[in-house]
Computed example of a mutant assay.
Amino acid sequence: MNWEYIYLHGFASSPNSLKANYLRDRFSQIQIPLTIPDLNQSDFTHLTMTRQLRQVAATFPPSPTPVTLIGSSFGGLASAWLGETQLQCQKLVLLAPAFTFLDLWLSALGEQTVEIWRREGFLPVYHYGSKRSLPLSYNFVTDLKQYPETKIQRQIPTLIIHGINDEVIPIQASRDFAASRPWVKLIEQQSDHSLANVLPEIWQEISTFCQLSNF
Protein backbone atom coordinates (compact mmCIF):
# COMPACT_ATOMS: atom_id res chain seq x y z
CA MET A 1 0.00 0.00 0.00
CA ASN A 2 1.31 3.46 -0.88
CA TRP A 3 1.88 5.89 1.94
CA GLU A 4 1.02 9.58 1.92
CA TYR A 5 3.66 11.99 3.26
CA ILE A 6 2.68 15.40 4.60
CA TYR A 7 5.03 18.08 5.97
CA LEU A 8 3.78 20.68 8.46
CA HIS A 9 5.84 23.86 8.72
CA GLY A 10 6.38 25.78 11.91
CA PHE A 11 4.69 28.74 13.57
CA ALA A 12 5.02 32.00 11.62
CA SER A 13 6.72 30.07 8.83
CA SER A 14 5.63 28.89 5.38
CA PRO A 15 5.80 26.02 2.86
CA ASN A 16 8.95 27.70 1.48
CA SER A 17 11.02 27.32 4.63
CA LEU A 18 14.53 25.87 4.47
CA LYS A 19 13.52 22.45 5.82
CA ALA A 20 10.36 22.29 3.71
CA ASN A 21 12.29 22.95 0.51
CA TYR A 22 15.07 20.57 1.45
CA LEU A 23 12.71 17.69 2.21
CA ARG A 24 10.57 18.43 -0.84
CA ASP A 25 13.69 18.05 -2.99
CA ARG A 26 14.79 14.84 -1.26
CA PHE A 27 11.37 13.23 -1.68
CA SER A 28 11.23 14.37 -5.29
CA GLN A 29 14.55 12.65 -5.99
CA ILE A 30 13.02 9.31 -5.02
CA GLN A 31 9.80 10.16 -6.88
CA ILE A 32 7.57 10.37 -3.84
CA PRO A 33 5.29 13.41 -3.52
CA LEU A 34 5.50 15.40 -0.30
CA THR A 35 2.41 17.46 0.45
CA ILE A 36 3.21 20.77 2.17
CA PRO A 37 0.05 22.73 3.02
CA ASP A 38 0.21 26.43 3.83
CA LEU A 39 -0.94 26.44 7.43
CA ASN A 40 -1.33 30.22 7.40
CA GLN A 41 -4.30 29.90 5.01
CA SER A 42 -3.69 33.54 4.00
CA ASP A 43 -4.95 34.48 7.47
CA PHE A 44 -2.19 34.15 10.05
CA THR A 45 -4.10 36.56 12.30
CA HIS A 46 -6.75 33.94 13.06
CA LEU A 47 -4.49 30.90 13.26
CA THR A 48 -5.40 28.37 15.94
CA MET A 49 -4.36 24.80 16.61
CA THR A 50 -7.94 23.67 15.98
CA ARG A 51 -8.03 25.33 12.56
CA GLN A 52 -4.67 23.83 11.67
CA LEU A 53 -5.71 20.31 12.67
CA ARG A 54 -8.92 20.53 10.65
CA GLN A 55 -7.07 21.87 7.63
CA VAL A 56 -4.48 19.10 7.62
CA ALA A 57 -7.00 16.33 8.28
CA ALA A 58 -8.95 17.55 5.25
CA THR A 59 -5.88 16.92 3.06
CA PHE A 60 -5.64 13.25 4.07
CA PRO A 61 -6.15 10.79 1.22
CA PRO A 62 -9.16 8.47 1.22
CA SER A 63 -9.07 5.82 3.93
CA PRO A 64 -7.34 3.42 4.47
CA THR A 65 -4.23 4.99 2.87
CA PRO A 66 -1.73 5.39 5.73
CA VAL A 67 -0.23 8.81 6.41
CA THR A 68 3.18 9.81 7.71
CA LEU A 69 3.35 13.31 9.14
CA ILE A 70 6.63 15.21 9.29
CA GLY A 71 6.25 18.30 11.45
CA SER A 72 8.65 21.10 12.36
CA SER A 73 8.35 22.99 15.66
CA PHE A 74 4.67 24.03 16.03
CA GLY A 75 3.99 21.82 13.02
CA GLY A 76 5.51 19.01 15.07
CA LEU A 77 3.13 19.71 17.92
CA ALA A 78 0.23 19.72 15.47
CA SER A 79 1.49 16.45 13.98
CA ALA A 80 1.54 14.85 17.42
CA TRP A 81 -2.09 15.85 17.94
CA LEU A 82 -3.10 14.55 14.51
CA GLY A 83 -1.38 11.29 15.38
CA GLU A 84 -3.56 11.17 18.47
CA THR A 85 -6.85 11.92 16.73
CA GLN A 86 -6.53 10.61 13.15
CA LEU A 87 -6.31 6.84 12.84
CA GLN A 88 -4.95 7.11 9.29
CA CYS A 89 -1.83 8.68 10.73
CA GLN A 90 0.50 5.72 11.21
CA LYS A 91 3.93 7.35 11.66
CA LEU A 92 5.25 10.65 13.01
CA VAL A 93 8.52 12.48 12.44
CA LEU A 94 8.79 15.47 14.76
CA LEU A 95 11.60 17.99 14.19
CA ALA A 96 12.23 20.10 17.30
CA PRO A 97 8.54 19.74 18.21
CA ALA A 98 7.06 22.67 20.11
CA PHE A 99 6.12 20.82 23.28
CA THR A 100 5.45 23.28 26.15
CA PHE A 101 5.22 26.02 23.47
CA LEU A 102 2.49 28.06 25.10
CA ASP A 103 4.05 28.14 28.57
CA LEU A 104 7.45 29.06 27.16
CA TRP A 105 6.10 31.82 24.91
CA LEU A 106 3.80 33.43 27.46
CA SER A 107 6.59 33.37 30.02
CA ALA A 108 8.97 35.02 27.55
CA LEU A 109 6.41 37.71 26.70
CA GLY A 110 5.81 38.53 30.35
CA GLU A 111 2.58 39.05 32.26
CA GLN A 112 2.15 42.68 31.22
CA THR A 113 2.43 41.99 27.48
CA VAL A 114 0.15 38.96 27.75
CA GLU A 115 -2.46 41.03 29.59
CA ILE A 116 -2.31 43.74 26.91
CA TRP A 117 -2.70 41.04 24.26
CA ARG A 118 -5.72 39.60 26.06
CA ARG A 119 -7.30 43.00 26.56
CA GLU A 120 -6.67 44.39 23.07
CA GLY A 121 -7.20 41.08 21.26
CA PHE A 122 -4.16 41.10 18.98
CA LEU A 123 -0.36 40.91 19.28
CA PRO A 124 2.15 41.83 16.54
CA VAL A 125 4.21 38.73 15.69
CA TYR A 126 7.09 38.64 13.24
CA HIS A 127 6.18 36.23 10.45
CA TYR A 128 9.26 34.72 8.83
CA GLY A 129 7.37 33.61 5.75
CA SER A 130 5.96 37.08 5.10
CA LYS A 131 9.09 38.85 6.41
CA ARG A 132 7.01 41.33 8.39
CA SER A 133 5.00 41.61 11.59
CA LEU A 134 1.40 40.43 11.48
CA PRO A 135 -1.29 40.63 14.17
CA LEU A 136 -2.20 37.39 15.95
CA SER A 137 -5.52 37.01 17.74
CA TYR A 138 -5.56 36.11 21.44
CA ASN A 139 -7.86 33.26 20.41
CA PHE A 140 -4.63 31.45 19.52
CA VAL A 141 -3.87 31.26 23.25
CA THR A 142 -7.33 30.29 24.48
CA ASP A 143 -7.60 27.61 21.79
CA LEU A 144 -4.18 26.09 22.49
CA LYS A 145 -5.02 25.71 26.18
CA GLN A 146 -7.43 22.96 25.09
CA TYR A 147 -4.50 20.77 24.01
CA PRO A 148 -2.51 19.56 27.04
CA GLU A 149 0.31 17.32 25.87
CA THR A 150 -0.34 14.80 28.63
CA LYS A 151 -3.30 13.60 26.53
CA ILE A 152 -1.08 12.59 23.59
CA GLN A 153 -0.92 8.86 24.28
CA ARG A 154 -1.65 6.96 21.06
CA GLN A 155 1.04 4.36 20.53
CA ILE A 156 2.26 4.90 16.97
CA PRO A 157 5.89 4.84 15.77
CA THR A 158 7.31 8.28 16.45
CA LEU A 159 10.73 9.71 15.65
CA ILE A 160 11.83 12.95 17.30
CA ILE A 161 14.93 14.83 16.17
CA HIS A 162 15.91 17.72 18.42
CA GLY A 163 18.98 19.95 18.74
CA ILE A 164 20.70 19.96 22.12
CA ASN A 165 21.35 23.70 21.74
CA ASP A 166 17.75 24.58 20.88
CA GLU A 167 17.20 28.15 22.08
CA VAL A 168 13.43 28.17 21.39
CA ILE A 169 12.13 24.80 22.65
CA PRO A 170 14.61 23.30 25.13
CA ILE A 171 15.50 19.70 24.31
CA GLN A 172 14.29 18.73 27.77
CA ALA A 173 10.73 19.10 26.46
CA SER A 174 11.33 16.27 23.98
CA ARG A 175 13.24 14.24 26.55
CA ASP A 176 10.31 14.46 28.94
CA PHE A 177 7.81 13.58 26.21
CA ALA A 178 9.81 10.53 25.09
CA ALA A 179 10.63 9.32 28.61
CA SER A 180 7.04 8.28 29.36
CA ARG A 181 6.27 6.98 25.86
CA PRO A 182 8.33 3.90 24.90
CA TRP A 183 7.06 4.05 21.31
CA VAL A 184 8.92 7.35 20.81
CA LYS A 185 12.54 7.40 19.61
CA LEU A 186 14.47 10.59 20.37
CA ILE A 187 17.61 11.45 18.41
CA GLU A 188 19.63 14.36 19.75
CA GLN A 189 21.69 16.44 17.36
CA GLN A 190 24.41 19.08 17.77
CA SER A 191 22.19 21.85 16.51
CA ASP A 192 19.83 24.68 17.43
CA HIS A 193 16.10 25.05 16.83
CA SER A 194 16.49 25.42 13.07
CA LEU A 195 18.39 22.12 12.69
CA ALA A 196 19.81 23.75 9.56
CA ASN A 197 23.29 22.28 9.98
CA VAL A 198 22.08 18.67 10.19
CA LEU A 199 19.67 18.43 7.24
CA PRO A 200 21.49 15.46 5.61
CA GLU A 201 21.42 13.63 8.95
CA ILE A 202 17.70 14.35 9.27
CA TRP A 203 17.05 12.97 5.81
CA GLN A 204 19.01 9.81 6.60
CA GLU A 205 17.00 9.27 9.79
CA ILE A 206 13.71 9.88 7.97
CA SER A 207 14.73 7.51 5.16
CA THR A 208 15.53 4.76 7.65
CA PHE A 209 12.48 5.34 9.86
CA CYS A 210 10.09 5.44 6.88
CA GLN A 211 11.93 2.70 4.98
CA LEU A 212 12.29 4.96 1.98
CA SER A 213 15.29 2.98 0.76
CA ASN A 214 12.76 0.41 -0.42
CA PHE A 215 11.49 2.83 -3.09
Rank of each mutant, 00 (worst) to 15 (best):
S191N: 02
A108Q: 14
L18T: 10
L94A: 04
M1N: 10
P148Q: 05
A78Y: 01
A96Y: 01
I171M: 13
P148N: 07
P135I: 10
L34S: 06
I152M: 11
P61G: 14
P124K: 11
M49S: 05
L8M: 04
E120T: 09
T59C: 10
N16M: 07
G71E: 03
I156M: 08
N139A: 15
H127G: 06
I70G: 02
N2K: 10
I206T: 00
P15V: 00
A20S: 10
A12Q: 02
Q86N: 08
L144I: 10
V141Y: 01
R154L: 13
S194M: 08
I152N: 00
F101S: 07
K151L: 15
E111C: 10
S213L: 10
A96Q: 03
S72G: 03
G75L: 07
L95S: 02
Q189F: 13
N40W: 01
F215D: 10
A108E: 13
V184M: 12
S13M: 04
E84A: 06
T85E: 14
I202S: 02
W105T: 15
D143I: 11
S174I: 09
P66L: 09
E84N: 07
T65G: 09
D103L: 13
L109A: 12
P157A: 14
K185C: 12
G110E: 07
P182F: 05
F122V: 14
T100K: 12
E149P: 08
L134H: 09
P15M: 05
L102S: 09
Y7K: 00
L212W: 06
Y5G: 05
S63Q: 13
T150R: 09
I6N: 05
G163N: 06
E167F: 02
N40M: 07
L159Y: 01
L134F: 03
S194P: 06
D38R: 01
H162C: 10
L104R: 11
Y147F: 15
S42Q: 15
W105H: 11
R51F: 01
A78W: 00
E4M: 11
L39T: 01
L186P: 02
L47H: 00
I70R: 02
L87R: 05
P64K: 05
L8C: 10
L47Y: 00
S194A: 15
A12P: 04
S14D: 12
A12R: 00
L8W: 00
L34F: 07
A58I: 04
S107E: 15
I6A: 04
N197M: 12
Q155M: 12
D192P: 02
L94P: 06
L39V: 04
L69F: 08
F140A: 12
L102R: 03
S79P: 07
L23S: 04
